[in-house]
């Protein structure tokens, strides 16, 4: 047995002749926040719908809580809370009444479930305001309140900060982190906002045109994207020799036959330059670089960046 809360194997979805999701292998670990990053139309919502059994799978498999979900939906749903796209509610009812309906449908035992859920997302309890009069952000909050109403172990949140104002976004992120850290919930969330994934996720899956291009942990990504000095020299082998001998440098990598990446940014570059020049090695450039997640994303998708 593994500790994957969600695992997909070769998950594929065709809409007509178009492949919306293409052979995706997703691994969401217990207690982690998994961020699915992709541009509009990349297939994030489709993947989530397939995980929840809301749309038929063309091929491949989904297992949730370690077992194939097919035919077990009824038993699995009470353990999952989800919002898919913008959640809808009854416009002629107040937020509290809406949640009471869902609480009764779920048979939620806790008497204060509705009140607590509303409090967590920052909406008033027993308010007179009808859902039809809610702003987009309030609707989104109510959707989240509904997703956490029954205290599920697994949350699937499709663009949870969609439509929230900056303060609302900050609150929501805070709150998602809290759910993960304090309550130990496993969260799969999607977003097209890179910085959001960067601050929230422990694991990240980058998806583009239905293909999962990369699946990695945030920690690993940070290591990949740490600061480094880019050194362009005429003779790389000779330069590395000098660096190792004179400066005791070990943490570097060779990039092509003219450039070096030095990860030890505390290195005295003036001295390095001088030493190299003295050995007849021309230094074309030396600069301090900082790969951002955005650069990484560009590199991975081989195209335009993402907001």
């Amino acid at each position: 047995m593994n500790d994957f809360m969600i695992e997909t194997t070769q998950l594929t979805k065709m809409y007509g002749g178009q492949k919306a999701v293409n052979c995706v292998d997703l691994h969401v670990r217990k207690g982690r926040v998994y961020g699915l990053l992709g541009r509009n139309g990349a297939g994030k919502t489709t993947i989530m719908k397939m995980i929840l059994g809301l749309t038929p799978i063309t091929s491949g498999e989904v297992s949730v809580f370690g077992q194939n979900i097919k035919g077990r939906e009824k038993r699995v749903y009470p353990r999952i809370g989800a919002i898919i796209e913008t959640p809808g509610f009854y416009p002629n009812l107040t937020g509290t009444e809406n949640l009471e309906i869902f609480a009764r449908l779920r048979g939620t035992a806790a008497p204060n479930a509705v009140k607590d859920a509303l409090e967590i997302v920052g909406l008033p309890y027993k308010d007179k305001k009808l859902f039809s009069k809610y702003s987009l952000g309030m609707k989104q909050r109510l959707g989240i309140a509904n997703a956490i109403l029954h205290d599920p172990e697994l949350l699937i949140l499709d663009e949870p900060t969609n439509g929230l104002d900056p303060i609302g976004i900050a609150e929501m992120r805070e709150f998602i982190r809290k759910l993960s850290v304090e309550h130990g919930k496993t969260i799969l969330l999607s977003s097209h906002i890179l910085s959001e994934i960067a601050v929230l996720a422990d694991e990240i899956g980058i998806i583009d045109h239905g293909v999962l291009l990369e699946e990695t942990s945030m920690a690993e990504l940070e290591k990949k994207n740490s600061k480094y000095i880019l050194l362009e020299v005429s003779n790389v082998p000779k330069a590395t020799l000098i660096l190792e001998r004179q400066f005791g440098l070990k943490d570097y990598s060779v990039q092509g036959d003219q450039t070096l990446r030095i990860y030890d940014t505390a290195l005295d570059m003036a001295a390095v330059n001088k030493a190299l020049v003295m050995q007849n090695i021309a230094v074309a450039s030396s600069q301090l670089c900082n790969d951002t997640l955005e650069d990484y994303f560009k590199k991975i998708t081989g195209g335009e960046g993402i907001a």
Partner: peptide, 17 residues
């Protein structure tokens, strides 16, 4: 009307109903 218009069915199915 409401459940169809506001795309609520998927929310009901995952309750599950």
């Amino acid at each position: 009307y409401n459940e169809n218009r506001y795309d609520m069915l998927k929310q009901l199915w995952i309750v599950p109903v």
